[in-house]
């Protein structure tokens, strides 16, 4: 009896070890296979030049337009989501903190919204665009993406604000602070690294998503100069150019994947460093 138990445990431990290794190696294989194909095509020309002769047929040029467009789009969207998201997160953790039921409903709703696929936001954004007679533009993309990342940024900030000790709220109140002062002075300072991490998370989501901008942002060979112009983005640069029959165009897609991975990894590393470093300076009760 004892022996079979031991064998069973041994067996499952081997399985567990294998599955953990599987996940590790999956990440490794993904990064390796893309870097191996993409890195040789990455050059200064690729980063700094627009595609010449159309992004789908032109054999020379780079993806500068997509890099800039992506940065514009995700900066805009994450700022907009931040402007809406920070007040919501503060609101449920300071003003509404005693209405536990209501707060639970809001959190539930946010979790539900988080699960909605981005293609649904894309289709919805497109409908709204057509309804108002707008064309595919940077603006439409920013609005759609910001709605898509709003639940993510709110829930991320909410998790940070939730862990602020109650004593801080009570002592600030007893000193006569208004609720908004508690929110934007006391809590904001206390949670700044967490808030920045949440914003970075949202930025990373915004720069990587393709389905929501497929119909709203459009694609061009140029860098957008105004909000009502269409913009090229990195995910769509990969998606469109990879389906091209011309190998030079596909090389641009591989190079774009390397750049996108690089941006996402940087965002992830920076947020990790931030949250590690600034956690030391927190007031602890």
């Amino acid at each position: 009896m004892r022996k079979t138990l031991k064998i069973e445990e041994r067996f499952y431990r081997v399985l567990m070890f294998l599955s953990t290794t599987f996940i590790c190696s999956a990440l490794f294989v993904i990064l390796f296979s893309i870097l191996r194909t993409g890195l040789p095509h990455l050059s200064w020309e690729m980063i700094s030049e627009m595609p010449h002769g159309g992004y789908y047929f032109g054999k020379s040029g780079g993806i500068f337009n997509a890099i800039v467009g992506s940065v514009y789009l995700s900066l805009g969207a994450s700022l907009l989501a931040f402007l809406l998201g920070l007040p919501i997160a503060m609101f449920i953790n300071i003003h509404l903190i005693r209405l536990t039921r209501f707060v639970a409903v809001i959190r539930f709703l946010l979790d539900l919204l988080w699960g909605v696929p981005s293609i649904v936001y894309g289709a919805f954004g497109f409908t709204i665009m057509v309804f108002f007679g707008m064309r595919t533009s940077l603006m439409a993309g920013i609005i759609t993406v910001s709605l898509f990342i709003l639940p993510i940024i709110v829930r991320a900030m909410d998790e940070v604000l939730r862990n602020v000790p109650k004593g801080l709220l009570e002592s600030a109140k007893s000193l006569g602070s208004t609720n908004s002062e508690i929110a934007y002075v006391v809590y904001f300072k206390q949670c700044l690294p967490g808030i920045i991490t949440a914003w970075l998370l949202a930025f990373g989501r915004a720069i990587g998503d393709a389905a929501s901008i497929l119909f709203t942002t459009g694609y061009t060979d140029f860098v957008p100069h105004a909000l009502n112009e269409p913009a090229a983005t990195l995910p769509l640069a990969i998606f469109f150019q990879l389906s091209s029959p011309i190998p030079e165009v596909r090389e641009r897609a591989y190079a774009a994947s390397v750049i996108l991975i690089f941006i996402v990894l940087t965002v992830s590393v920076v947020s990790r460093i931030l949250s590690n470093r600034y956690n030391k300076n927190k007031i602890n009760f």
């Binding site: 998503d209 393709a210 389905a211 995910p235 990879l242 996108l260 996402v264």
Partner: peptide, 17 residues
């Protein structure tokens, strides 16, 4: 970090892979 990075990779990257 492995789980973090895997969660943060854009879906189009998975497509390329």
């Amino acid at each position: 970090p492995v789980i973090d990075i895997l969660a943060g990779l854009p879906s189009v990257i998975f497509g390329v892979w």
